[in-house]
Simulated scan of single mutants.
Amino acid sequence: MPTSILRTPDAAFADLPGYAFAPHYLSDLPGYLGLRLHYLDEGPEDAPIWLCLHGQPSWSYLYRKMIPLLVAAGQRVIAPDLYGFGKSDKPESEGSYSFDFHREALLRFMERLEMRGVTLVCQDWGGLLGLTLPLAAPERFSRLLVMNTALGTGDIPLGEGFLAWRAYANAHPDLDVAGLFKRSCSQLSEVEAAAYVAPFPDASFQAGSRAFPNLVPDQPDAPGAELSRRARVWWQNEWTGQTLMAVGQRDPVLGEGAMASLRSVIRGCPPPLLLPDAGHFVQEDAGEQVARAALSAFGLVPAGS
C-alpha cells in the first residue's frame, strides 16, 4: 500500500454540469485495503452491465453523456475512477502506479461487484488495461465497445504522435487539464472543462496522471507488454462476443490508422463507426451518438425508439 495518499475534498465536485450521479465507494478491495475507490452505478441492479473505463487525464465525468441513454434502455452502467483520478484516492508518489497496480484493482473491483455479462466500454488507458481483463476472467464479458485506444504489446514502435505527447506530459508535471480538453473538444464550455480539473486541486494530486505516459509498454519486456501480447492472441482467437468500434478521426495519436490495426486483431469486429468530427475523447465529442449506435448494434434498442 502507498504510504502517502491524497483525497480530493468533496467540495471540489459540487455542482458539476451534467454529473448528478450518486457516488459509490469501496475501501476494502483485496490488496488495496483502505484505499478508497469511487464509482458510478446507475440503472437496475439486475440489468446487463456496461463497465465504462476512462483514461488519462479524465475520470468518470467523461461518460456523463452516455450514461442516461444506456440507463433509459434498461442497462446498468458502472463507471469507476481509477486510483489517482476522479473521486478515487490518489497515492502521492508516481512510483506507486504501475500497469499491474491498475489492472489488478479492476479485476478485484469486478470480483467484488460479481459482474457477469459485461459490455466492456473502453478508451485510451481504459483500453490498454481493459482489453487485458478477459485473460483473467473471460466468462465475465459478452460485448465490447472500443474507442480510440490500443494494446500495449511492446513489439510495435510507438507512433510519433504518442512520443510527442509523452514528451509534453513529462515536461509539464502540472498539466493544464482544462486547456488540454478545450483544445481537443472545442465545444466544451468553461465549466465543463473545469470539471476535468476538479480532481486535481494542485500538482501533487496529479501523480497518477503523470505516471501514465511512461507506463505505456514501449519494449517487449516492459511491464504489461507480455500480458498485452497474450491478450492480442485471445482477442484474435477466443473472442466470440459482439463488438462495436467507434473511431474519433481527429485523434492525432490513436485515430483511424491505430484503430484499423486494433480492429485486425479483434475477431469478428465489423467495420467501425467513423466519427469525422470527434477527436481522442470520443465520449465528449460524440457520446450520445456512440451510445445509440451501440444499443442498436447490440440489439438493445428499447421498443418504440
Rank of each mutant, 00 (worst) to 15 (best):
P157F: 09
G127V: 02
T132H: 05
T149E: 08
E104M: 14
Y97A: 03
S142R: 13
Y168N: 15
W125R: 01
W125E: 01
L129K: 04
G161C: 09
W165R: 15
G95C: 08
L128N: 04
S93Q: 14
A150R: 14
G161S: 09
W165A: 15
L129I: 01
S96M: 07
L133G: 00
L163N: 14
S142P: 08
R103W: 10
T132K: 06
V121P: 02
L151D: 05
L158P: 08
S98Q: 07
R166C: 11
K87E: 08
Y168H: 15
G95Y: 09
L133T: 01
S88L: 08
E104I: 14
D155G: 10
E139H: 13
R108T: 07
R103T: 09
S142V: 07
R116F: 05
G117F: 02
L158S: 11
F85K: 07
A137M: 15
L129N: 04
D124R: 00
L163K: 14
E104D: 14
K90C: 08
L106Q: 03
G159N: 13
L106N: 02
E139C: 06
E111P: 10
L151E: 06
G95D: 10
M147L: 14
L133K: 02
L113M: 05
G117M: 04
E92W: 12
E111R: 14
S93Y: 13
D124S: 01
W165Y: 15
L106E: 01
G126P: 03
C122M: 03
G95Q: 09
A164M: 12
M110D: 04
A167E: 14
L131M: 06
V121H: 00
F99A: 00
K90P: 10
N148R: 12
H102V: 12
G127H: 00
R103L: 11
L131T: 05
I156L: 12
V118T: 05
R112P: 01
